[in-house]
Each structure stands twice: as structure tokens, then as C-alpha cells.
Design a protein around this nucleic acid. Structure first.
Lengths: 216, 216, 216, 216
DNA sequence: TATGAATGAGAATTCATTCAT
DNA sequence: GATGAATGAATTCTCATTCAT
């Protein structure tokens, strides 16, 4: 197979994958840098060193891009939890890992109301399927680790997702510039970071399932 | 409540209050009708039978309008919970009432990421203060009703707020048109309504505090 | 004549005059404080401790207000020049005084293109008449002081007004925040203040009329 | 200059230049037609047969558009003066040409107080640089033609710019509808056209530099 | 495939002025 | 005379997406 020496087009599948990856990375960098609402498709194209037209060849919508970003982050979260959780560390791990995977929390906070609301059906369903599978994996993990029956574990898993959603919201508020916030309102912002609020609630939820030793 | 013939001028404070109320009502109707992102200030003005200038006399920003709507809804929620909750009904009431107060859930879902993010500081702080006070009332109620110590009740109250936030998110997804959703994905949407998911999680959270009789 | 003890209405002419003066003063303060384009009629009303309705009882238009301000400033300028100018000091005085009377320069800069363009005919004509009279006084003064014939003095006076207008424009540019201006452009802003540029040009214009002693 | 069939895309730089030119021309036509304050960006887009988005591709701000218009006019003025001025005709040329280049005078009248005040720094600096260069060319010309030393020529050039600014202001007033102006005020408007007032002042300023033969 | 010029709907907000009380 | 609530016209500019080249 003779390939032209200076081929600019990504024809093979692996090249396409690589280019798509570059685009997602560019988006990640921009979210970090300019905040969520500051990201524009033009900027993503430029950051990925790709034209706008090409960008839309790999990603059909702005929100689809964000959704892909979220699913990848969620995959990392689930994998790491599976790798690290034991009956002793479950709660600690579940409280810590989501906060450690970059962009997972802020993307989660916008997932439903902002992102999913604007993704067309087909791609939405595809990603939802992946999320659902991951949810099942977490439920199974909880069941295995705590010894709780499957259905209880599934409820707990659902409750954790709810709570995680909520904690992600509060995290947004917690990250605002606090100078300028009157003293009496400080507590309404401070200490609402995901890594504070979620573990607290996770403990309440999981404590019913786990042997007392794990609850801490 | 003296509702001025709409063409007239609201001179007394009570007339002004009434007119502001009329504006909020108009907004409520439009949210119902056109959905969240479909609401425009022009439409609100027209629906309230008021000029755009007048609208801005009573509400300084679109998001301020939504925030006000949320706080009023939250007030209703808290009042009704205080009125109805007993040691026996606490969990049931807390699971039911938020879903019954119109617009509370969808507004809650957008509260942090969409609404608060766009409200200028001063009005934000004012409303936050009201919310904070209501939060304290709920914590006190939980403490009174369950007999749990204050600090435990405060933690539970916080966890409940997190969970409520999350449940509000899921509620958005649950309300989408389900025809067209592939069968294998149905469970990812169905049964995620606020009134299903929140009580479930609330039970997990509150069960640690309450005597077993109250848990169910 | 029995006057009611606590009379809030300005009925006598002198009272009206006083109130009008208060309004003009309020406007002056606001221009100083918020800059030209920052002044709103609402703010003027508040600063003058008068209702908006009342404000419009004394001043028919925003621009009319500014025009009145300008004419008063011009009156001061002309009076002071008449008082201070001698054959020796003419140029120095004419270069210095306009810059010393508050608001004269910035109002002059907007006089034609911004202010007069929006004043209705009747009040415009009234104020124009006053300005014209003052122009004549200046021409007479120049003639007296330099000994130049009337018509030459009138031409010089006109040329001076042109130049003053232009110098007022440049003054605006000179007063902008200079940090951020690249070094090579500094000279395009610096040293363009009215008090620098106008005397220079005034000297060129008057030097043809005055005996050499007065030129410097 | 390849003017693309207006629906086509301007790919080459020369096509882009042409399109930008078409936009500026459209703006010129509208200023003529509707007067200064009557020009809106929507109208410019329509007149240029371009979408609003495209308009903003070529011009970043309304005021930037006006500034560009002024700089182009100034370029014409300076070129023509350079082409036509001799030691004999200098004053006559400098008095006539600015009035002959379309839009130069009315744009100059609004240059500082209206236009520059609303142009963001970067584009402002770029255009200021061009203006500054042109100012230097005029100074050099004056020096060459009159034989006056450089610094004197520079002062005269500055004074001329001041005066030109002022004359442009008066020109606005002179162009208003005179029917309706009371007789005694006629002289305050009539004969204030740029082409009357500026040459008169220019003569006063330049006469000090030039050999008597050139003065008239 | 890749490009980037073109699109255009869309919406929030301000503030001078008026007029009901 | 005084008030201040009501008015509403009027305009800029953004940015996701498309499509001619």
C-alpha cells in the first residue's frame, strides 16, 4: 500500500480516531481555560488546528462534543472506582475519584439541563447506552463489595447518581470568586465543593448497605 | 391584594406588589407554555400586558426573574412541608410536596448552572439569604420531627438538598417525549421523575436519623 | 402676603430661578463624576432632589440642559477675558481662561455635533443669540486691545472660535487613559490638552494683529 | 479590483478587499441619504447586499466602520494636497480640497467626540498611526513648499488640524435648513461653511510662514 | 476530504420623555 | 405645581451551522 508522502487527509480509521481525539483534547483545554460558556466552536477548531468545516466532520453538534467529553470522563471515573474500591475503601473511593477526574464534575453539572437537552436523538441514545452500562457496572461493584443484594445495590447506585448530580451543581457555586461575598453568606458558598459535599452524602447513603467497618 | 386595572399606575406599595406578582405569573404561564428556553422578555411583557420598560422596572434581569420565581416556589415548598410533616409522614411529605409545587422542580434543575450563573451579585445575595434561611428551617424541622441532634439534622438537610437537585435534573430527562426511544433505553428515562427518584433517595438518607417507624 | 409655612412649590420667579440653578448644578456635578455620556436625566433629577416630572418643567430636553450649561460657561469665559485682558496679556489670557472655567472645554467639544443637533429651534435660537452677542464682545475687545480695525478683529475672533473648537476636540483625546497606549503613539495623545494646543494656535492667529510686544 | 458577483465567496485577498470596499461604499451612500445618526448596521448590511454576520466579518464595530471611512477620506485629502500644492497655491489648495472630498468634513466633525470615543483600543491605535503618518506628510509638504523650518511647519500643521476640526463643526451648523431661522440670527449660520471659514483661518495661520506672494 | 466565508435569527436592555394622579 | 410610573422604539452584535470552492 503506497501512501502519498505528505498526506493531509485523515483517511484511515486510526487517523480519524486520532483526529477526533485531538478535537476532544482541544475542547478540554478550552473549557479549562475559558470556562464552560466561553467555549465556541470556532475556538475549538482553531485550538485543534482544524478548520470549522472539518470540525463538523467529526462532531455533529457543540453539545455532542460536550456529551462525548462527559462520557469519556465518566468512563475514567468508573474504571478507577472499579480498580480501587474494596469493601473497606468503597465510600472513600467513591467520594474521591469523581472529583479527581478532570472535567467530570463540571460536565456532570450541565449534563441534563444544558447538554443533553440539545443533543439530537440518535447520538444521545448511543451515549446514553454507554452511560447505562457503566451505571450497571457500578451497581454490580457495590453489590460485590458490600454484599448487599442486587436490587438494593441498584437503588443505592441510583441514589448516588442523584446525589452526585446535586453535588456537581453545588460545586459550581462553590468555585465562584468569594471576595465580595458578604460574611453571613460565606457558608452558602464555602465548603460546598464536590469533594466536601458528595462524600458526606455518599456516606449517609451507603452506610445502610455496608458493614459498619466500611462506613468508617 | 388590589390588582390595578392593568392600564393604571401602581402608586401604592401594595399595587406595586400586585403588579410584580402579575409579571411573575405571566412568566410562569410562559414557562409552562413554551418551555424554559422559549421564554423571552418581550413575551413576558406582552403576556403581562405591560410595556418592556415597565417590565424592567419590576425585574432587573431575565435571570433575576427566574430566580424570584424559584424562591417563591421554594417558599411554598418549605411552608407546606412545615405544615404537613410529622414524625410519621416526614419522608412521604418531603418526597411529595416538592413535586407538587408548580415549577419548583424544573427551576431547581436550572438553578445553579443556568440561573444563578447569570444573576448579578447584589440580587443574588439577597435571594441566597432567603434560601439559606429556608434551609435552616428545614433542618430545624427535621431535628424536631426525628429527634435527631441539630448537627446531624443539618447534614441530612444538606444531603437532601443535593439529592433534590439531582432528582430535579433527572426529572427533565424523564419528561421528554418517550416515543422514539428504543426499548432497551426506556429504563434510562422512565421512572426517573422527581416523584419517583427523590423519595427513594430521601428514604435512604433519612432512615439513619429516624426511628424505624418513620422510615416507612 | 402670607406664605404657607412649609411650601414645597416654587412659585415666585426667584424661587424658580433658584431651582433651575440647582438643576444645572446637579448636572455639572454629574458630568464631572460620570463623564458626558454617563449622565442620564434620571440621575440629574435625583441629584437635584427633584422628580423627573419637575425636571422637565425647568428644562425641556436633555440637550437643552447641556446647552444652557455651555452658555453659562461661555459667559464666564468672556467676562473673565474682558476683565483680565490687556494689550500685553491678551494672548496669554485667551489661552488660559477657557481651560480654567469648569466644563467649558468638554461642552464646547460636543457643542455642535452632539448638543445643538438635538435642541429644538426655539430654545436653540435663544441661546445662539446670547452666544452671538458674546462673540461680538470678544471681537470688540480684540479690536480695542490690539488696535486692529473692527473687521480684522472680527475675522480673528472667528478664527479663534474655530481653533478653540478644534482644541476642545483634541482635549478629549488627550484626557484618555494613556497606560496602554503604545509608545510610538504617545505623541498623538500627549500634549494635546486644550491648554497646550490652543495657546499655540492662538498665538499664530493673533500675532498678525498685535504689536510684537503682545505676541509674547 | 475584482468585484465578486455579490453572492459569491471572497476567497482571495483581493476579493476580500473588494468586498470590504463594497461595504464602505454602502455606508457612504447611507450617510449621504439618512444622515449620520440615521445609519444602522442592519441598513448597511442590506445596502451592501450582505448578511449582518458577513458585515461584522469585515468590520468589527459600527464606529470602526466610520473611522475607516474617515481615514480613507483623509488619505484622499492628503494625496490631493500633495499633488496640487505649490508655493503659490498652498493656501488655496488647503482651503479647497478638504471641502471637496466627500464626507471628509462631516466625519471630521464627529471624529473625536463621537467616533473615536467608541472605538476599541487596538483598531483605534492602528488607524491613529495612519493618521499620524499623514500628519507628518502634510508638515513636510508645508516645510518644502514654504521653505519654513521643520518645527515651525509642524506647529503650523497642528494648528491647521485644530482649525480644520473647528471649521468642520461649524459646517454642520451651516448646513441646517435656514428657512425658519430669524433674520438676526442668519449670520450665525450662514457663511460658516467649511469652505468659507477654514480658508480664512488657514490664511491667518500660514501667512506667518510663507513669503507674501503665497499668502494671496 | 478540507476549508473558512457566509449566514441570519434572535433577544436583552436603556433611557428620554409623557401623563395619570 | 409636583410626582414617578409607564412607555416603547430602536439597535447592536454573537455564534452555531452550512455550503461553495
Amino acid at each position: 500500500m503506497v501512501l502519498p508522502a505528505n498526506r493531509k487527509r485523515a483517511r484511515s480509521d486510526s487517523e480519524k480516531e486520532a483526529r477526533r481525539g485531538a478535537i476532544l483534547d482541544a475542547a478540554r483545554r478550552l473549557i479549562d481555560q475559558d470556562g464552560f460558556d466561553g467555549v465556541t466552536m470556532s475556538a475549538v477548531a482553531k485550538e485543534a488546528a482544524v478548520s470549522k468545516g472539518t470540525l463538523y466532520l467529526y462532531v455533529h453538534t457543540k453539545e455532542e462534543l460536550f456529551l462525548a467529553l462527559f462520557v469519556e470522563a465518566m468512563e475514567q471515573v468508573v474504571c478507577r472506582i472499579e480498580a480501587e474500591a474494596t469493601s473497606v475503601t468503597l465510600i472513600e473511593v467513591m467520594g474521591r475519584v469523581p472529583a479527581e477526574v478532570p472535567l467530570f464534575v463540571p460536565l456532570l453539572a450541565r449534563l441534563v439541563a444544558v447538554i443533553e437537552a440539545n443533543v439530537p436523538d440518535e447520538p444521545l441514545f448511543a451515549e446514553k447506552r454507554r452511560m447505562h452500562t457503566m451505571g450497571a457496572r457500578v451497581a454490580r461493584l457495590i453489590s460485590n463489595v458490600t454484599g448487599a443484594p442486587e436490587d438494593l445495590a441498584r437503588d443505592a447506585s441510583k441514589a448516588l447518581m442523584l446525589t452526585m448530580q446535586g453535588a456537581a451543581q453545588f460545586d459550581i457555586a462553590a468555585r465562584r470568586d468569594l471576595s465580595g461575598v458578604p460574611d453571613d453568606l460565606r457558608p452558602a458558598f464555602e465548603g460546598q465543593e464536590f469533594s466536601c459535599s458528595f462524600p458526606l452524602a455518599a456516606r449517609l447513603i451507603l452506610s445502610g448497605l455496608t458493614p459498619s467497618s466500611a462506613v468508617n
